[in-house]
Design a protein around this nucleic acid. Structure first.
Lengths: 399, 399
DNA sequence: GTATTTTGTTTAGCGTCGGCACAAAGTCAG
DNA sequence: CTGACTTTGTGCCGACGCTAAACAAAATAC
């Protein structure tokens, strides 16, 4: 009776990522018959997740009956996405397709303990849900720290002056229950928590510069330190305990600065915004503005030789680290975020040349290196994590 | 009518890896009903791949009807496995379960060009097939070089004095056709080719020290250089073009020896058998005996302070490299082969301590590091690669 | 010896999907 | 404008592959 139950998840993911604009291509992508694809689309529409245009698309030039366009339901359910960073937090409602429906930024003038700030960001999200009246199907939280699995604890939330091992997922889930954020069936939605760079990589893979990549490597800075993430065949690879891609301690300058990890010349201290500012002869400001300060300097004063030299120095070190990662992971695309995105924009060729030169197989076809393209990609990534159960089994969540 | 088609592959893999000793646990592992599991087992038995014991197992102590044991068919079909290394080649027939049915070693006194030696090893394998009269379902070849995908070319067969880019998979497939190695339907079997360490990792994961690991990292030496491999959720991760886990150029000694990659202090030149022999004050012999020479020295003269010191030096460097990999890959187990296996055996605690100390989260639960346990694991791994199509879809190959 | 537990088999039933025919809605050729 | 063609969407049927449930078999437990 209900046709196409197994294909329901894959079909939703295709529409979600914009790879199934019509039922015809959905049929081809799923490898099923038109009958099944039609039933799948009807089912997803009945669930309120996608929309099938009543009018066929305007003439495409090709002959044959025109297809009806598929798209995510514009006022379908959403997920609650939250991000905490050094200078504040941000809550948002995100629909399918990575569509940001509503956002609420928040400041944090004094460092707060994990429970307080997580409560605050959830309260902001719950407010958005009340204002918009949207159904909520899940919730995701991005934090600037490695998050251990399956415990859901933040292992190194250094930039938030939190205690190591803060149980962020539990706190998030409890805050959601307290705030009355209910999912299908009236039960509180479970909270997902993850590292911000990991989640940003997921977002870039689904909706940004990483679309279509099979093995996507992302490297990005916040204010301090360098983070990495890897998406393999569409799934985030976070290692056996969530701690993979801690790339900050690759050695990129053997005679460099000592690092808190015990070694010296780590990527973390040699290629982050603070390192760039120092190299350019500038005095780094407070931690919570390093990224902004570095980015502005790079954008406005690139003609200044000291800035240019510093940019090239940092780019060379980053290139060395990326080359090491290419030798180990062999990705087919690299996306850079934070300061590294700006370094790439300032001089794309230099960085690419260093990576090609220092990676073993660089000569025989180098890896494309692209800047991140999404605004708030960690936030969208938190939403992706929250959507994942729905994408895996729509009926299991909504049935 | 034909019951259990989707579960056929998973079921075969369970029996193949020894995780389904009876139909009862097969039922549980597959998550199907007893009826389906019984039909699946019957189908696999009819295909000649597994055997269902006629007599029930001896009393197990637990009550209830005793189960009939499942095992791989002792005289079922085989695959042709081949390995080429610096001092010769080896051909074998390998059945399901990693059972070596017949082997034929071969020497190579003078360096030969790829086509000649591949022809020779295939001829040896074809001879074994004629002698034993076994059905052949596939063929796999292990070479000491990165193998590019999808081209199937050997990119750095340095130890074989082959030209870089030798099309080993094509040569292998052609040799199989020439030698008349036929599969089901009388068509020549296709040849698979892969890096020896990669294939060894696959073998250790299925039948050796890596059994049950979710994310398995293998690191091993041959005579020169260091190789790595990663098995993720049971599948070999060889990157987007087959070049992943080229771990030989991690920096482990910033002030160390220059490497042909342009850097200095790479794992390749700092932690291979030649480096160990030099550190111990011994004169390295010819390339094709370095591993043997180093292993013997380590086994017989570990009381000699110079040997012990050298072993500890190399182990420390290896530990540094492994720690870097742990930070990036976060595996839940590490298996070491070649000289590294012996270093681990000589002093297990030292290596584990270095890795725990230098990896970021070592304190909160360090990664188990184990020695490889299979003889000829690259050869068995080549067989695993050849079996893969059968494990994925038995009917597609045999139906 | 009977009850209980666990395993294996048979049968019936049903859900899900492919195949096919048909309808719908456009372009193309004359 | 009309008819042929192409492509998309839908309804119906049948087959395949599974579950469920009852039954049978073979051991242990009391």
């Amino acid at each position: 009776m209900e046709r196409g139950r197994a294909a329901l998840g894959p079909a939703l993911e295709l529409v979600h990522t914009g790879r199934a604009p019509t039922r015809a291509v959905l049929t081809a992508e799923l490898g099923v018959t038109r009958a099944t694809a039609g039933a799948v689309a009807a089912e997803l529409e009945a669930l309120g997740l996608i929309r099938v245009d009543a009018r066929p698309t305007a003439s495409t030039g090709s002959q044959g009956r025109p297809s009806h366009r598929l798209s995510v339901a514009p006022d379908g359910p959403v997920v609650l996405a939250a991000q905490i960073h050094a200078d504040g937090f941000r809550a948002a409602l995100v629909g399918l397709g990575g569509r940001m429906v509503a956002t609420a930024p928040g400041c944090m003038t004094v460092p707060a303990d994990p429970a307080r700030i997580i409560d605050a960001v959830v309260a902001a999200g719950a407010g958005l849900l009340r204002e918009t009246g949207r159904r909520c199907l899940g919730a995701g939280l991005a934090v600037p720290s490695a998050v251990a699995e399956p415990e859901g604890t933040a292992l190194n939330p250094l930039h938030l002056s939190w205690p190591a091992g803060a149980p962020v997922r539990t706190l998030f889930t409890e805050a959601l229950a307290k705030a009355g954020v209910l999912g299908p069936g009236g039960v509180p939605v479970p909270g997902m928590a993850g590292n911000d760079v990991n989640l940003a990589a997921l977002a870039e893979h689904r909706h940004g510069a990483g679309r279509g990549a099979r093995h996507l490597l992302c490297v990005a800075t916040g204010h301090r330190g360098v983070g990495g993430a890897l998406v393999l065949d569409g799934r985030l690879h976070s290692g056996s305990s969530g701690l993979a891609l801690e790339v900050g301690h690759l050695t990129v300058n053997p005679a460099g600065l000592p690092c808190h990890c015990g070694s010296r010349g780590c990527l973390d201290v040699e290629a982050d915004p603070a390192a760039f500012l120092t190299a350019a002869g500038r005095t780094p400001g407070p931690d919570s503005s390093l990224l902004h300060q570095a980015t502005e300097l790079l954008r406005t004063a690139y003609d200044d030789p000291s800035v240019r030299d510093a940019a090239e120095l940092i780019a060379d070190r980053l290139g060395l680290g990326l080359a090491g990662l290419v030798n180990i992971l062999n990705p087919d695309r690299i996306v850079l975020g934070g300061l590294h995105r700006e370094l790439l924009a300032a001089d794309p060729d230099r960085l690419r040349a260093v990576v090609a030169d220092r990676s073993l197989w660089g000569r025989s076809g180098s890896v494309p290196i692209l800047p991140a393209t999404l605004d708030h990609n960690s936030l969208v990534g938190a939403a992706e994590a929250a959507w994942q159960p729905v994408l895996d089994d729509p009926l299991g969540v909504l049935g």
